[in-house]
């Protein structure tokens, strides 16, 4: 009997699904906060990937857990930065649509 939860492939496919969904949301951008949500999905997929390899491939089980903790820390820092950035952008441009914030383009 083969169980789905004891295979490396099922975790990797979920991680790829998270990455592809985040990429979809990132390209089809609607607002800066929507893009931030997509970024969190991508980072979550990366963390799941590390944990899957940590469970099935690596001999030392501490490495992947520590790396996933660091990914969580980076995600928290990034969320704080982007939220305050979107507040500043809204105060200046009265919108958070990323396509209308383009003064440096010209």
């Amino acid at each position: 009997m083969t169980l789905l939860s004891t295979h490396l492939y099922s975790y990797l496919f979920i991680a790829i699904f998270l990455f592809a969904t985040g990429l979809y949301g990132m390209i089809q951008h609607r607002s800066i906060i929507g893009m931030l949500i997509s970024t969190e999905l991508i980072l979550s997929g990366a963390g799941l990937n590390f944990m899957a390899f940590n469970r099935f491939i690596t001999p030392d089980p501490a490495i992947g857990q520590i790396f996933t903790l660091f990914i969580m820390g980076i995600a928290a820092a990034e969320a704080a930065i982007v939220i305050s950035f979107s507040l500043a952008v809204y105060r200046r441009y009265q919108t958070i649509d990323p396509e209308s914030v383009d003064k440096l383009r010209y």
């Binding site: 790829i16 699904f17 592809a20 990429l23 949301g25 001999p59």
Partner: peptide
């Protein structure tokens, strides 16, 4: 563009995961 690019990347990554050769570890040190 978003639908096509994410679908293409999903299937490319899935194929590369599926055809790669993983060596499962036999003994853990911790």
């Amino acid at each position: 563009l978003a639908v096509s690019l994410s679908t293409v990347i999903f299937f490319m990554l899935s194929a590369s995961v599926f055809f790669a050769k993983w060596n499962p570890v036999t003994e853990k040190i911790g």
